[in-house]
Design a protein around this nucleic acid. Sequence first.
DNA 1: GAGGTCAAGGTGGACT
DNA 2: AGTCCACCTTGACCTC
Length: 262
Amino acid sequence: MEIDHSICDTGLVLGLSLSSSPSMANLNTINSKNHPNFELTLGLAGVGGDNIGTVLYREDSAVISSGGSSFSNKSSKRDRETGSEESVRVSNDNNCSRVMSATSVDDGVEDDDDCANGRKKLRLTKPQSALLEQAFKHHSSLNPKQKQELARELKLRPRQVEVWFQNRRARTKLKQTEMNFEHLKKYCEKLTDENRRLQKELQELKALNSSQPFFMQFPAATLTMCPSCERIGDTKSAIVKNPFNMGTKPHFNSFSNPSAAC
DNA sequence: GAGGTCAAGGTGGACT
DNA sequence: AGTCCACCTTGACCTC
């Protein structure tokens, strides 16, 4: 979506663009669910074309993973955790997160009746969630010791605590991304308005410029007229600048002294 | 039934 | 090679 893009002949460029991309494929992310992939570029370029201020925001493109099946028979990296975490495992009626496949070896031999029919979703209880949230406030990631400790308190497997923290971090990031998107959208709108206003102002100045003689463009206080020859000059410059009579020599040094002879 | 939420699996990259 | 993490995805469950 192109919002605005403009270049004026003063050498200044104020350009805004908000573009969407259809390349996003992840249905679980902000990119396709709530917002399009967007790229916001705010540029203010000088005469030489140097971009002196650019804000660029772009959501990372999703890479659709080729594998990714939760029920793959490939050996998982998670296999490594089998040993250490199994020892801490505690029984939990609600703790039935297994998949009926060979991949979930991390919790050892678990064949609870509840789990025998396939993948059942674990629902954390309110106290469990509250404790996890509390822990997350202190540390957004856990070291192994903290993980074990928390798992013991919650009567969960360390793997489950780890997964909860991973998902929690992802949720936080997603929320932050959404907030950033909103902020940038507002900023973009603000700059678009400002751009419009400046364009309008520029047009007005151009119109004024073409309708008035050159000397009329100076503020009145800076212009003086030579009383004898009626030439126009400014009070600061020692050089007489009569735009309509560009003589080779200065006519007089300063108009600030009206008594000076011409 | 559609769509959202969330626990959990798979994969790849970074780090040691 | 082992570990951790981010990212993507799946499937169970919930709400409407």
